[in-house]
Design a protein around this nucleic acid. Structure first.
Lengths: 199, 199
DNA sequence: GTCTATATGTTGATAGAC
DNA sequence: GTCTATCAACATATAGAC
C-alpha cells in the first residue's frame, strides 16, 4: 500500500489529537479540525474515510504512547528503586507535555471499554510479572495477594491524578496556574520518596 | 415561584444524571433521556428550557454532591487520624455507588473550568485550613511549603484514581469485574494505613 | 491532492391540539 | 402537564470539477 502525502496526513493527525483530547469523540467537530489543519473538510475524508476512523487512529496512537513508555520502564533491566524512579520521572514529564492525554483516555474508555480489547492484543498490554516479582523480592509483604497490585495502583494514581484533576485541585489548593505547575514538578521527588519508603 | 410536578422533574434529573455522567454534555441525547424517563422529548423542554440548562442543573448537583461530603469530613471535629479514615471511607463508598461521577466531573471541567468559578462561590468550596493545621500539629514536616498540599493530593488520588481508571487498570491487573470490585473494597484499609504511616 | 457545492441524516427546540 | 408533528440548524459525508 502506497503511503499518501505524509506531511498533510501527519498534520491532520496532530491537529485531530489536540481537538479529540480536549473535546472527545462526540464533542469534536470535523470543521474545526479542518480549519486548524489549514485544509478543507473534504480532505479529512480523503485521508480518513470517516470521523470514526480518524478518531480510532488518534485513540490507538494515544493509547500506544501512554502504555508504550510505561511498559518499557516496567519491563526494563533496572533494579526496583531505580525502576520506580524512572516510572515516576517518565510519567510526570510525559503528562507535563500532554496534560489532556490522560483525561481523554479515561473518558473514552469509560464509554467504550471495548476499544481496549479490540485494538490491543494482550501482547501489547503491559506485563506486570517482572515488576511484581521485584516487589516480592524486596519485601515479603508484597507476596500477599493483591499487595503488589495495590502498590502499582498507588504509583500510577499518585502520578496521574493531579494532572487529571488539575482544574478542581488547583482551585481547592488555591493555586494559580504557575503555582500548580510548580507543585506538579515538585511531586516527582515527593512521590518517589513516598513509594521507596513502602519497600 | 411554584414548584412544578416534583415527581416527573426528579425522574428527569435522575435519568439525565446517569446519561450525562456516562456520555458527557456533547455525547448525551435528549431523546435518550426522554425515553429512559418514560416521557416525551417536548416534556424535557417544558421542565428545563434547554439541554444546556438541564446539564447545568445536573452538573451543579454532581459537584455539590462530590464536594459537599468531603467538606463535611475535612471541616469536622475529629482528630486527624480519624478524619483521614473518615475521608477514605466516605469517598470509597460514595464512588462505589456512582463510579462514573468522578470521570464526569473531570471531563467536563477539563473543557470548561469556568463552570467551577461561575457556579461555586468560594464559600461553597472546601476550606483546607483546618486540615492543614492538623497536619502541621501532627508532624513538623507538614509545616514545609506545599507539604500539606501534597498529602491532600495523595489522599484524593489514591481514593479516586482507581475508580476513574477502572477500565484500563482492571485490564492491566488482569482482573475481572468482580475481582476489581473486591480490589477497590480492599483499598480503603490499605490507603488509610499508608496515609497514617506518613504522619 | 485539493477545492466547491450539495446530499443526507441527526438533533435541539417549538407550535399547537388535547 | 402531556402529547404529535414539524422546524431550523448543524454535522458528517459524498459528488464532481480542477
Amino acid at each position: 500500500m502506497k503511503t499518501l502525502d505524509a506531511s498533510t496526513r501527519d498534520r491532520i493527525l496532530a491537529v485531530a489529537s489536540t481537538v479529540f483530547y480536549q473535546k472527545g469523540l462526540s464533542g469534536a467537530r470535523m470543521q474545526e479540525i479542518a480549519d486548524l489543519a489549514g485544509i478543507n473538510k473534504a480532505m479529512l475524508h480523503y485521508y480518513f474515510k470517516s470521523k470514526e476512523q480518524l478518531f480510532d487512529t488518534v485513540f490507538q496512537q494515544a493509547l500506544g504512547q501512554f502504555l508504550g513508555g510505561i511498559g518499557q520502564v516496567l519491563n526494563g533491566e533496572a533494579a526496583l528503586p531505580a525502576k520506580i524512579e524512572q516510572y515516576v520521572a517518565y510519567t510526570t514529564s510525559a503528562l507535563a507535555e500532554t496534560p489532556s492525554l490522560a483525561a481523554f483516555i479515561v473518558h473514552e474508555l469509560q464509554q467504550h471499554p471495548e476499544r481496549l480489547s479490540n485494538q490491543f492484543s494482550d501482547s501489547r498490554l503491559i506485563n506486570l510479572d517482572d515488576f511484581r516479582q521485584q516487589l516480592a523480592d524486596a519485601n515479603t509483604r508484597y507476596q500477599e495477594p493483591n499487595a503488589a497490585e495495590h502498590f502499582f495502583a498507588n504509583m500510577v494514581a499518585l502520578c496521574v491524578y493531579p494532572v487529571l484533576a488539575q482544574p478542581l485541585l488547583s482551585r481547592l489548593l488555591r493555586q494559580n496556574e504557575a503555582q500548580y505547575r510548580r507543585f506538579l514538578r515538585e511531586r516527582a521527588a515527593h512521590i518517589t520518596q513516598l513509594l521507596l519508603g513502602q519497600l
